[in-house]
Amino acid sequence: MASRKIYKKLLFYLGIILIILFMTIPVYILFRVSFAVPEDVLTSHPKFFITRFEFKHWQQVFNSGNLWPPLYKSFIVATFTMIFALVISAPASYAISRFDKKIKYAVILSLFFTRMFPNVGIALPISVTFLKWNLTDKNIGLIMAHLIEQLPFIAWILVSTFETIPFDLEEAASIDGAGRIKTLLKVVLPVAAPGLAVAAMFTWLNSWNEFTYALYLSLSTKTLPLQIYYYVLRGGFFQQAAYSTILTIPVLIITFALQRYIRSDYLGGAIKG
């Protein structure tokens, strides 16, 4: 009996170890390749463990001049997408959270359904229209395209944030004679601020990683994900790894800093990353 228990426990830990290996090894390999000596990995028998480092690929990446324009474009687009998404979605989410329960449910469900449309189906007419409006390759065009996905996403999160703020708080303010806009800015906004910040950061990440719309709307300029894709097509073995590492670093940091905020109702908006 006792030995069977130990046997079971061993099996359990073995399962856990296998899962951890499955989850972590790909990330390890990415970092490993970006620092690898070519003979160690570019063979039919790649070495798994790191025995020596080489920074040549990194130097090439930083000196080639191919890094800064896409990095800059990705950063600008992600930041402005985040700002616009907040400005447009936050007031709307506040109003939705104060709706009658039935209407609220209907609105939330329709937000949910707009997220189910295939983005290639939306990107096609958008790219045709933006070509006409001369927005292709422009940052503002890409920001507008990213808002298509990010507005429902952030609204979904923010509705549940505003829901947790008790209505009594606003009533008290209005009894004290504050107008509705003043109540919103002085009472609701400060309480909601942490939730807004978390939602904003996830929006930033989604836009930073976004690939589909960027592919449809870029002819000569590149975002960081497009740059990675370009090296995948060209077979740039080490550039792939280095650029991927650069793209990953902010995502990894922000995701783990916000780990405890990732609640399951956030996932309803599906954090794709």
């Binding site: 989850m23 790909p26 990415l30 690939f211 990675i228 991927s244 793209l247 990894l252 990353g273």
Partner: peptide, 9 residues
């Protein structure tokens, strides 16, 4: 961990 890695990556 994979949550912190972009899909493309």
């Amino acid at each position: 961990l994979p949550m912190g890695v972009p899909t493309l990556v």
